[in-house]
């Protein structure tokens, strides 16, 4: 990395961001001022404690454009907390977070603007029960991106067709199966074409026979060039879609590398122990 460690690059103002037609631009376009190959997300020395419980003890992690990184680790190893800090849902106690080069851990940053650039899918879908499937998907487009309803719905329907749920556009979320709801949640997250997608244990609340359809969709997103940081318990899935596996233990990165390396030939005893338990 060529940037000095404590530098804080100039932020793109919200006006500039609103100006760029992210939803109409081709997917792989990157903002003009960025050099090719700059990581989408850079975490530097992230520390987070809840009282005396030190959940993250100094995490350094980069996610490159179009890269899919899977965080694995036991419950309480800090996977979810790490995702939340990246989305500014938790304030870090130390360290620095850069999103496409912008220091988003700076207190002067426009927090809502940053969150609009990041898509999140939650374990329990968190769809809005009072809105139809289509309105769930288009809410961000209409109210944050300020798209006209017709334009937003056109894009929403395209997305619903892509996830195979166009027929349910007017239905309400509670009429859908868990797998369908989670696919809608993914569509909602990718609708504004975010620079980064965070997936937090998105299959943990699903019945085993519903997991496949959600994972297939994520694999498709990877194929389409999405940049994804995900926490998962599905080791097989991580192997299938992740470019890199990161094993967290005790709030630190214990081991990382390509799936074949980390999952098949783990070097660290903690990784070996963890994989022995989950793969048994």
């Amino acid at each position: 990395m060529n940037a000095p460690r404590r530098s804080s690059p100039p932020l793109r103002s919200p006006e500039q961001r609103r100006g760029d037609p992210a939803t109409t631009a081709p997917r792989r376009s990157s903002p003009p001022q960025l050099s090719f190959g700059q990581p989408v997300l850079q975490l530097r020395g992230i520390v987070k404690s809840f009282g005396a419980n030190h959940v993250l003890r100094g995490i350094d992690l980069e996610v490159a454009r179009h890269e899919v990184v899977a965080l694995i680790g036991a419950s309480g190893s800090g996977k979810s907390t790490l995702l939340k800090t990246a989305n500014l849902l938790e304030r870090i106690d130390d360290g620095q977070i850069l999103l496409a080069g912008d220091d988003i851990s700076d207190p002067r940053v426009d927090v809502d603007g940053v969150r609009a650039r990041i898509g999140v899918v939650f374990q329990h879908y968190n769809l809005f029960p009072h809105l139809s499937v289509l309105d769930n998907v288009t809410l961000g487009l209409r109210k944050v991106r300020r798209l006209a309803r017709a334009d937003a719905e056109r894009r929403g329907m395209t997305l619903l067709e892509r996830i195979g749920l166009a027929a349910q556009a007017r239905a309400y979320p509670d009429r859908l199966s868990g797998g369908q709801q989670q696919r809608v949640a993914i569509a909602r997250a990718i609708a504004p074409d975010p620079e980064l997608l965070l997936l937090d244990e998105i299959t943990s609340a699903l019945d085993p026979q519903l997991v496949g359809e959600v994972l297939d969709l994520v694999a498709e997103l990877k194929g389409a060039g999405s940049t994804i940081l995900m926490a998962t318990h599905e080791i097989g899935f991580a192997r299938r879609v992740a470019d890199r596996i990161v094993f967290l233990h005790g709030g630190r990165i214990c081991e990382q590398g390509p799936p074949g390396q980390v999952l098949d030939a783990p070097q660290h005893p903690q990784t070996q122990e963890f994989l022995r338990r989950v793969l048994r």
Binding site: R6, R57, G58, I92, D93, D94, G95, D106
Partner: peptide, 18 residues
Amino acid sequence: SRSLPPLSDLERGRRVYR
């Protein structure tokens, strides 16, 4: 191994600002 790294100047600056 259980201790946290010392507070960085960056975080100090952020706290002063907040």
